[in-house]
Design a protein around this nucleic acid. Structure first.
Length: 445
DNA sequence: TCGTATT
């Protein structure tokens, strides 16, 4: 039915209105298709904009890749179609071996001779330092996974090379992903990033700062437009609260039981309170509401507001902002268990809609590294009804790329958000908030 | 630095 060495292709940048039957003709011209599957969300059935494609013949896949990959843009897409081997195919890593515990004086030829009996060697590289001295290890790539496996079976631990401290190591080389992960862990070790305490405080700190400054921006806007004594009073009150909150949050110990012998914030003891919502669910770090105001409901549905749209009036953002501030002020560790339970029950509602109407979609750059979709949403909620908030994430590292999109359901909210948030300082950076580039409307049919 | 999605 299909070649034993067939390649499964990943196809990206597919318009979400195209199904298998629409795509088939496009790909069939390169050969007989064995399987073509559009990826769908497992719960909602939502089209993910990509597909897997396997031809019966390996050659067809290669032809399709070279003819289509980055070569052609499907209607309605901004970027060219992607056609390349799926991640599951590995990047040749499944036939590449890492060889350790070689003798320092062994050459590439020596290693080749050792590995030749098990198959066709495509690549053989000794790892060397800057001075050219062997590091005692190498990469050997075979033509197939089976050959590589045979080499492992026969050679791993089979002998000890002169000058090596233990027997020969022969294993599959790390995949790119494994390498990246390893690097991340190394960096994390140096920076202490993966200490749960640190990452939570990092997120919370930046988030708090963003909220505080956001309040200031909102108040400035309110004062500027209203010239109303009440606004001035409200502003003064909120500034006071901001000061209170900052000191309360950052300086106070987070739990009564932690840190008797370590300073607050550096404790390595388990911290069940604030840590859990962010770390486990990626939810907003805001605590449960205590005052009956609606501003924080969104938090518990992972940023999706379960109620009809808030009106984008001046009063509404202020009210919400105010409610948010009270949460910070009032948040004690005692809320932790409630907060935790609440978060665990929060429904996961996948975002159905990504993009709003023209003029409603914002592009945001210079986001703090630790901001996720939820924080982005939270930050723009005061300006109107947020349809979606998406932070771009590097797929290999799961790290934010520090930019994202926010979509409102109306242009007025979008403009208000630009007014208030563009140039907004967070840490060392200033947010860049602008309308998303409109996708090219005048494409020749 | 412009909606990236890998069963």
């Amino acid at each position: 039915m299909k070649d034993h060495d067939a390649i499964k292709l990943f196809v990206g940048q597919i318009p979400r209105n195209l199904e298998e039957s629409d795509l088939k003709p496009l790909f069939e011209e390169f050969g007989k298709i064995y399987e073509l599957t559009v990826l769908k969300d497992r719960f909602t059935g939502m089209h993910k904009g990509c597909a897997f494609l396997t031809y019966c013949a390996r050659d067809s896949a290669l032809k399709a890749q070279s003819a289509l990959h980055e070569q052609k843009t499907l209607p309605g897409m901004n970027r060219p179609i992607q056609v390349k081997p799926a991640d599951s195919e590995g990047r040749g890593e499944d036939r590449k071996l890492f060889v350790g515990m070689l003798g320092k004086q062994q050459s590439e030829d020596d290693v080749r001779r050792l590995f030749e009996p098990f198959g066709q060697i495509e690549e053989c590289t000794i790892l060397r330092g800057p001075d050219g001295a062997s590091k005692g290890c190498a990469f050997v790539k075979y033509g197939s996974h089976a050959e590589a496996q045979a080499a492992i079976n026969s050679l791993h631990g089979s002998q000890t090379m002169p000058g090596a401290s233990s027997s020969l190591v022969v294993k599959f080389a790390d995949t790119d992903k494994e390498r990246t992960l390893r690097r991340m862990h190394q960096m994390a070790g140096q920076l202490g990033i993966f200490n749960p305490m640190t990452i939570q405080f990092g997120a919370y700190g930046a988030y708090t700062q963003a909220i505080m400054q956001q309040q200031a921006a909102l108040m400035a806007a309110a004062q500027g437009t209203c010239l109303n004594p009440m606004a001035a009073i409200a502003a003064a009150q909120m500034q006071q609260m901001a000061a209170f909150n900052v000191s309360g949050l950052v300086a106070a110990p987070m739990t009564p039981s932690s840190g008797t012998s370590t300073p607050p914030g550096i404790s390595t003891a388990p911290v069940p309170s604030i840590a859990t919502p962010i770390g486990v669910n990626g939810f907003s770090p805001l605590p449960p509401q205590t005052n009956g105001q609606p501003a924080s409901e969104t938090i518990y549905t992972n940023g999706i507001h379960p109620y009809p749209a808030q009106s984008p009036t001046v009063a509404d953002p202020l009210q919400q902002a105010y409610a948010g501030m009270q949460h910070y002020a009032a948040y004690p560790a005692a809320y932790a268990p409630i907060s935790q339970a609440f978060h665990q029950q929060a429904p996961i509602i996948p975002q159905q809609q990504r993009e709003g109407p023209e003029g409603c979609n914002l592009f945001i750059y210079h986001l703090p590294q630790e901001f996720g979709d939820a924080e982005l949403m939270q930050m723009f909620l005061p300006f109107g009804n947020v349809i979606s908030a998406k932070v771009f994430v590097d797929r290999a590292t799961n790290q934010s790329k520090c930019f994202g999109f926010v979509s409102f359901d109306n242009p007025t909210s979008a403009q208000a958000a630009i007014q208030a948030m563009n140039g907004f300082q967070i840490g060392m950076k200033r947010l860049k908030v602008q309308l998303k580039r409109p996708k090219d409307a005048n494409r020749p049919y």
